[in-house]
Amino acid sequence: MSRLKFLLFIFLLWIIRSDVQSQQISKEELIFLTPEWKGERFPDGRPKVPDNIVKRMKSVSQEEAWAVMKNAGYGYQVAEGWQLINPDSVLVGRAVTATFMPARPDVWGAIDARGKKAGKKGQNSWPVDLLVKGDVYVADQFGAHRNGPTIGDNVGNAIYAKSGNGIVYDGALRDIEGLKEIGGFTSFYSSYDPSYHNPPGDLNTMIIGINQPTRIRTVTVMPGDIVLGKQGIVSFIPPHLAEKVVKTSEVVRLRDMFGHLRLREGKYSAGQIDAKWSDEIEKDFSKWLNDHINELPVPKEQIQELLKDRTW
Results as ranks from 00 to 15, higher is better:
P200N: 06
P238N: 09
N294Q: 12
Q212W: 03
K287Y: 14
K287R: 14
Y268K: 03
W277A: 03
E243A: 08
E250W: 06
A270C: 13
I273Y: 00
G229S: 05
R262F: 03
I210V: 15
D291R: 10
E282P: 11
H260W: 15
M222E: 05
R215A: 05
S286T: 12
P239Q: 07
P200R: 03
R217W: 11
V298S: 06
E250K: 04
E295L: 15
T214L: 05
S235Q: 01
V221R: 00
R215C: 00
D225C: 03
W288V: 01
G201A: 05
S278M: 15
P223W: 05
D256M: 11
D279A: 12
D274I: 06
L261D: 14
G271L: 09
L203W: 11
E280R: 02
Q231D: 13
P297I: 00
G229V: 01
E295T: 05
G271D: 11
P239F: 15
S269D: 13
I281L: 11
R255K: 14
I233A: 13
E295S: 12
I233R: 05
L289Q: 08
L228F: 08
K276D: 13
V245Y: 12
Q272L: 13
W277V: 03
R264Y: 13
I210W: 08
Q212V: 09
Q272S: 03
P200T: 05
L203R: 09
D284R: 08
E280Y: 12
A270D: 13
I226S: 00
I237G: 04
D284Y: 11
P223V: 10
P199K: 08
K287E: 11
I210T: 01
P239V: 07
K287P: 00
V227H: 01
L263M: 12
I207L: 15
T205V: 15
H240G: 02
V298N: 02
E265F: 14
N204W: 12
S249L: 06
I281K: 01
R264S: 13
R264I: 13
A275G: 12
N211W: 07
I226C: 07
P213A: 03
P297K: 01
T248M: 10
D225S: 01
T205L: 14
V252A: 14
N204C: 15
Q231S: 07
I293F: 10
H292F: 06
V221A: 05
Y268S: 03
V246G: 04
P223A: 04
G224H: 00
G229A: 12
V245F: 14
R264C: 10
L289W: 03
D274Q: 11
P199M: 05
W288P: 05
I226E: 02
F236P: 01
K267L: 13
E282A: 15
T205K: 07
F258S: 04
I273W: 04
S286F: 12
T248C: 08
A242P: 11
G232C: 01
K276G: 09
L254P: 01
H240W: 11
K276Y: 14
P213T: 04
E282D: 15
I281G: 12
G266R: 07
F258C: 06
I281T: 07
I237T: 02
L263Q: 09
P299T: 00
M222N: 04
E250P: 10
K300Y: 11
I273S: 04
T248G: 14
